[in-house]
């Protein structure tokens, strides 16, 4: 049984959508189910996802010129990997634009700490229960969140030197 099928079986009501495009198994789940699903992924012996390999987010503002509708503006994307079974799973959580907040996974995987800080820095998505949520790549004086689609790529906010 693939990890995706196992998660579907266990959390059938919490899953919004699944697909496995080009062999990448993906489950889109409700934000409130993130914590239990993640815990299950880590602790179920037949899944044993001991790596949180990657954590990032995607901004779907005017995705494909507005042709493709997404449930929410942002999606936080988790890539899990199991060393024992050598399988992978992608988890996605839609995050609303008005209250961009999801649960933090710091308590389960230590690697989530910095990744979540980066997502906060770049997208302005808050993580509930994160011990030290502050900017990581940009400086504190920076206004806005750079990887949002409505942030112009060349809008500079110099600390010193001329404004241009």
């Amino acid at each position: 049984m693939t990890p995706l099928a196992r998660v579907q079986e266990r959390f059938s009501t919490q899953i919004i959508e699944t697909h496995s495009f080009r062999g990448d198994e993906t489950a889109v789940i409700r934000p409130e189910a993130l914590r239990p699903v993640a815990q299950f992924l880590k602790e179920a012996p037949e899944l044993d996802f001991n790596f949180l390999m990657d954590l990032s987010a995607v901004d779907y503002l005017f995705f494909a010129g507005g042709r493709i509708q997404k449930p929410a503006r942002f999606e936080v994307v988790y890539h899990f990997f199991s060393l024992k079974f050598n399988h992978r799973l992608r988890l996605k959580v839609p995050v609303d634009e008005k209250a961009p907040e999801v649960d933090s996974l710091c308590a389960l995987w230590a690697s989530a700490n910095w990744y979540e800080r980066e997502v906060w820095d770049m997208f302005g998505i808050k993580f509930k229960g994160h011990p030290n949520l502050k900017r990581i790549l940009m400086y504190e004086e920076f206004q806005g969140h750079a990887l949002r689609k409505d942030y112009p790529f060349n809008k500079r906010q110099p600390l010193i030197g001329p404004q241009y």
Binding site: M53, D54, S56, V58, D59, F63, A64, G65, I68, V77, H79, A110, S111, N113, W114, Y115
Partner: peptide, 26 residues
């Protein structure tokens, strides 16, 4: 790792790179 989201156009919608140094520094 490279995580690429495409919307069917000629520009990538999102390119995310999973940098191996990042967790080491953490």
């Amino acid at each position: 790792g490279f995580y690429i989201v495409s919307d069917g156009r000629d520009y990538p919608w999102r390119v995310r790179v999973h940098p191996p140094c990042f967790p080491i520094m953490a």
